[in-house]
Nucleic acid binder design. Structure first.
Lengths: 154, 154
DNA sequence: CCAACTTACGTGACATGTCAACTATTCCCG
DNA sequence: CGGGAATAGTTGACATGTCACGTAAGTTGG
């Protein structure tokens, strides 16, 4: 009889997949970040924030909602928005309905910055990621990531 | 005639897969880090360094080789090793063959720390990742990530 | 041999991210 | 109403990561 505390390690296949996953997870964002910085005045987190703001008609989103959409901690977002505001990419605005709340608002400079940066960024994503995968791969990968995300939510 | 500068944006399917990929890429390491910190005195980067060191028979690896294996920048590794050395997890040792070089050496405290941390960590990886995927998924995912990694290398 | 180049690593300044604590409001319920 | 609990957001200290540069040791061509 073996004890129940014996650890079930990863099989060779699992280990290989896991190592590749980790490697890709490190290298892909690094590449995206480097190229984005080279081609624009934005960092990857800057870009992510601006994407969320341009998704809104008025370019105007509550901090908490933005944090939820980005899956960032509040304090991280607060720090980051402060820095972006200093560079003129966004502005903060008080919320009239709720005295505690604030909006983050896209400035014209912020809109101009993401519009300049986006085309090259999409090209990088294609070149580094989608060009290596078949259409079927993309669908399968979407399904797998969703299964794992669902698991994480529970 | 359209201009060649027209940007080819992502299709709906691509966009969905991409967003899920990004979400998973953010959430999974965050979970692994939280649980590792809760269950041990190690951070995820600490763990990664220690894994590399335990892979070597003598637990003794040149800085440059370690940086290559981890795909980290030298300076990042240098800073991190300094911090880990301060906590007694590793030691630095001069290289006799090459006066410029140094080794990072696993201490017994470092070995003990990773041996304590590994079982719970593997369980977390299983629970959060592999349990959501079929054996076939794991193989396919391994193939896909390898294709993308190969693309990045070129 | 030696001057120029390369390589190995470290350092300091700064950007980014986390955690715990804080302030100010709003909510809820007696 | 009034007072405690929850919520929105900020802040400061600190850990982590990046970038540009520095230093020392090895390498190499004339």
């Amino acid at each position: 009889m073996t004890t129940q505390t014996a650890t079930r390690w990863l099989s060779d296949t699992e280990q290989q997949t896991w190592r590749r996953w980790l490697a890709l997870n490190a290298q892909l964002p690094a590449l995206l970040h480097r190229e984005l910085q080279r081609d624009s005045e934005l960092s990857l987190p800057d870009f992510d924030v601006l994407v969320q703001l341009t998704d809104d008609d008025r370019g105007r989103v509550r901090i908490a909602q933005l944090a939820e959409a980005l899956q960032w901690e509040r304090s991280r977002l607060s720090h980051h928005v402060t820095r972006m505001a200093r560079r003129g990419l966004v502005e903060k605005e008080d919320c009239l309905d709720d005295g505690r709340g604030s909006f983050v608002v896209l400035t014209s400079a912020g809109r101009a910055a993401i519009e300049r940066a986006a085309p090259a960024h999409v090209r990088t994503v294609r070149r580094a990621f989608f060009d290596a995968l078949s259409d079927e791969d993309v669908v399968l990968l979407g399904e797998m990531t969703e299964k794992v995300l669902a698991q994480l939510r529970s």
